[in-house]
Design a binder for these strands. Structure first.
Lengths: 193, 193
DNA sequence: TCATATATGTGACATAGATCAATGTAATTT
DNA sequence: AAATTACATTGATCTATGTCACATATATGA
């Protein structure tokens, strides 16, 4: 149940077995069926969750009806609206299970206890957040200067698994293009080579 | 000399005066003239820097000759290519002073000492990185779904100072649009109201 | 103070990608 | 197995923004 989480922690910081055991007591397991929501726009994000199994998407809906996707999260990744989680403000994001999921959730009070009692978790979350920031910065720069085709090819490179597990129109929403454009793009690529 | 940095730290974490004094010993002051580079593509980012005075931009140059800007950094902000800083890989970014600047730099070895001797700095950098991530995520979502006009108006809202201090074509590069589009946009807005 | 570089504005035209609409195809649900 | 819903493809057209070219400010440094 905690295999992936333990691995994620041990890969990044040194921690004793007792600390790890204490840490585990702060999490609640949570199962979601496909299409269930972990968070809906307007609600406060009460938990940050670690994905042990399954795949989710974080997205918004804007006035024009676009649904840009901020992120896909599969096994081994954390998921939350950190702004809402940290500030207790209502979230602008939706988080939806794309497959049946098994999560480990930690509430904000428990998270604060964790940081206080085992300060090495400050380091763990600092490292995770840094890596997330680096990836998000890259995506932002790409989103400003790359063509639809370049973005798609890069995604295939970076997350080959994603293409298999996620419906095509969501890939399009992640890339910031329409499903029609992605469909045409793919048939071009297929005929080219 | 350390006014802003001390303020930035004290606002986010609790720290003793001795700790703060020790911290100060790890920084090197650095002055840059307008147009000087703090980092050039291909070099390893050896320092992370705190801006006491002035304004800088972080940008890349892609094959098509675009120069998308990742970020403007003025007083009170940190600046570095964190990927290069953390991995010692050559950077893909350029960091250029847009005004005469006064910085406080910390090298990676000193930064590691800082984190080790005063663990509360893990927390400080975790918080900074989280806030940066939240802002970058918002910009990414906007970049995928907003029009040029929406992006520009939002920027005015979020960084009114920026518009005054930064040439217009760089604002355009930050928004991911051409200088011509921004120029037309502005004259429309001006005539509208 | 001139001379050169840097920055902005505007017109004519091109284009990547969006939009709208229709059709086909696979998955789920009953 | 039929019915419903979700997903993908393809064509015709539209549009926001890019590109290119040139004119005009405005800085800046000798």
């Amino acid at each position: 149940m905690f295999e992936l989480l333990s691995k994620s922690i041990k890969e990044r910081v040194s921690i004793t077995e007792e600390e790890l055991e204490f840490c585990k007591t702060l999490f609640l397991p949570k199962k979601l069926r496909k299409r269930q929501y972990l968070l809906q726009e307007g609600d406060v994000c009460k938990y940050t969750s670690f994905v042990e199994k399954g795949m989710l998407r974080t997205y918004t809906i804007d006035e024009k009806g676009n649904e840009p996707i901020l992120q896909f999260s599969s096994e081994g990744w954390w998921i939350a609206d950190i702004y809402s989680f940290l500030t207790d403000e209502p979230s602008h994001y939706n988080i939806e299970a794309l497959e049946d999921c098994e999560l480990l959730q930690i509430s904000k009070p428990s998270w604060e206890i964790l940081l206080e009692k085992i300060p090495v978790f400050e380091r763990y979350f600092r490292i995770l957040t840094q890596n997330n920031l680096i990836a998000t910065q890259r995506r932002l720069m790409g989103s400003m200067s790359e063509t639809a085709e370049e973005k798609y090819l890069k995604l295939i490179d970076n997350f080959p698994g994603c293409i298999q597990r996620v419906p095509q129109h969501m890939i399009a929403s992640y890339l910031g293009i329409t499903r029609e454009t992605l469909s045409r793009l793919r048939s071009q690529l297929a005929s080219k080579k």
